[in-house]
Structure formats: C-alpha cells, structure tokens
C-alpha cells in the first residue's frame, strides 16, 4: 500500500470519522454527493474498483428507503398526489431521496474504511490504551481462519466414518455437525493448553503490557492530520451556527446559498479530497517514472513498478 493507505492509521481514522460525522449531520445533497465522489475517487485511485461492486447489493435497500418514506410519512405541505387516499408530499419524497444518498454515502464510506483501516491497524490505535483487550481481540482474530482450516481437515477425515453434514436427513446433519464441532473444540482446547504454556513461558501477566506499535507517525502524517482537522473545523463551525442544513420538514424552504455555505462547502471539499489528492500524487509519481526509458532491455518498466513499491 502506498499513498493514503500507507499513512498512519490515526490519519485515516480521523478522515473516516469526519466523513461519517458530516454524512450524518449535514443532510445537504450537494455535500453528500461530494463525499460520495471523494470516496469513490479514492477507491478508484487505489485500484479497488471491484470493491465498489458491493454497492449494487446495497442499492435496493437504499432505493426502498427513498420509495417507502413518502408512503409512510405524510408530513409536509406540498401535496403531489394521492395513493390509496394518502397524500404523497414533496417533502417526504425529497427527504427519502436525501436519506438514500446519506445511506449510500455511509455504505461507500465503510467499503473504503474496511480497505484502508484493517482490523490490525485499528487495534494498533487502541492497543496502548487497552493492551489486554487488544491482545484478546488479536488472538480471536487469529482463531477464526485457524478454526476454519482445522474444521476443513476434520470434515475430510470424519467423512470416512460416515459423519458428513452434506448427507442424510436434517437431524443427522445437525448431529454430525455437532460431532465435528466437538472434535474441533477438543483439538483446539488441547492446543490451547500448549499456547497457554508458551504465553506463560514468555512472561505473560508478569508486568503491565506495553505495545510495540508498528506504525510511527512521521512528519507528513502529522501535517495531514493537522490539515484535515483544520479543514473539518470549517463545516463543523458552520453547522453549529445553523448553516448548510436544508430545511425539509415540516415545510420545504428554498435552499439558501450564502457565503457561509460557500465557505463550508470549500472546507468540506478540501477535507474530502485530501486523501484522493495524496493517492493521486503517488499514482502520478509512478506514472511519470514509467515513461523513463531504461537502458537495460530486460528491466521492463512495468515490472520495476511493482518491484519498487513497498509491499506490506
């Protein structure tokens, strides 16, 4: 990972926390659309377009919110038409659309969050504060794929004994499933005893745990952190002063767009677009070096790229 993904997790966390806050507080369609644009741009620049496919699955949920809101909410004064003697109001339709956009924003945000802040990075941020909880979580994280692998092995062997969850009636399948789990548990407990020994042997519980912390905050991290925080303050201050929130209920008001909103939007844009800019800069850097001609014929420019990029 390079660019934004390689930065200190605290930076990424601030970014996503800020975005989430804005998405939930400022239901301004333009703001929301800008946020979606920023995140999608970041994801595309990181080469993870396939992750965005998840949106397709989420789309029906978001659309149904937009559709159902006017059917259930009848607040507002601008009546468009009647369905089953119920009035459909313009306010409810608009509110539904804004909610849909908000949900989409949050969804896209979490797609990107999951890619950039892995469980590992998240734990690093909090390992210092709660070392024991962090340790437990880490061990649990390791156990999930471990148990999956073990269960696969057990299933393969026990099939010979006629214990197979893929065959027979429901009752037998459930029973067999339980047997497989029993084998898994006894095996894992057996190993856990040895793990406990190994932990004790290395001084677990002797001292208050410290945290190694694989990520160091460098100058750029600090700068970006400050910059993001500063940018975030502008829309937040505007919101506190009551700007930038369109009034839909109980009665739609025409959207104001004064200089306060202009400032807020500018601040938001700077905030949202900083990570894509960092990512883009990285991309551009490598792109331009690709154009360089190499004296050696065997060293293909396309290959040096992946060889040089620091991989984690």
């Amino acid at each position: 990972m390079s660019g934004f993904g390689a930065m200190h997790p605290a930076v990424a966390l601030l970014y996503y926390a800020g975005l989430l806050l804005f998405a939930l507080l400022q239901l301004h369609p333009l703001f929301l659309l800008t946020e979606i644009f920023g995140i999608v741009l970041l994801t595309v620049l990181q080469g993870q377009v396939r992750l965005l496919r998840g949106v397709l699955w989420f789309l029906p949920v978001a659309l149904s919110v937009a559709l159902l809101n006017p059917l259930f909410s009848h607040r507002g004064t601008h009546i468009l038409f009647y369905v089953w003697d119920r009035q459909i109001t313009l306010e409810a339709v608009l509110y539904g659309l804004v909610t849909m956009t908000m949900l989409l924003t949050v969804f896209v945000l979490f797609i990107s969050y999951n890619y950039n802040i892995t469980a590992d990075k998240f734990m690093h941020l909090f390992a210092g504060a709660a070392p024991k909880t962090a340790l437990l979580t880490w061990m649990a994280i390791r156990f999930v794929p471990l148990f999956q692998r073990r269960l696969r092995e057990i299933t393969r062997i026990q099939r010979v004994r006629g214990i197979d969850t893929g065959q027979g009636g429901l009752r037998k399948r459930m029973k067999d499933g339980m047997i497989l789990l029993k084998v898994l548990v006894s095996w894992s407990l057996e190993e856990a005893l040895q793990t406990a020994d190994s932990m004790k042997a290395r001084g677990y519980g002797v001292h208050k745990r410290s945290s190694y912390g694989g990520y160091r905050m460098d100058r750029l991290d600090k700068l970006v952190l400050l910059w993001l925080a500063a940018c975030a303050c502008i829309p937040l201050a505007g919101w506190l002063a009551g700007h930038g929130v369109p009034e839909i209920y109980p009665r739609l008001k025409p959207m104001e767009w004064g200089w306060e909103e202009g400032w807020m939007y500018a601040g938001l844009c700077l905030f949202v677009l900083t990570p894509p800019a960092l990512e883009g800069k990285e991309k551009w850097l490598w792109r331009s070096s690709r154009r360089k001609t190499y004296p050696s014929a065997t060293l293909k420019p396309g290959r040096t790229r992946c060889m040089n990029s620091p991989s984690r």
């Binding site: 070392p131 880490w138 856990a192 020994d197 677990y204 001292h207």
Partner: peptide, 22 residues
C-alpha cells in the same frame, strides 16, 4: 503451531517483549 499466540510474524516476535513491558 500451538506455541504461536499472535497472527503475524512481527507481532509474534513482539509478544514476549510486550509482556515484559519494554
């Protein structure tokens, strides 16, 4: 296998040192 506590190599290496609070 059973002696390993953590999920990644560097983390496993750091485990003992973390325990002793270095």
């Amino acid at each position: 296998d059973a002696q390993i506590v953590m999920d990644t190599v560097w983390h496993e290496l750091a485990f003992g040192l973390e325990n002793l609070g270095y």
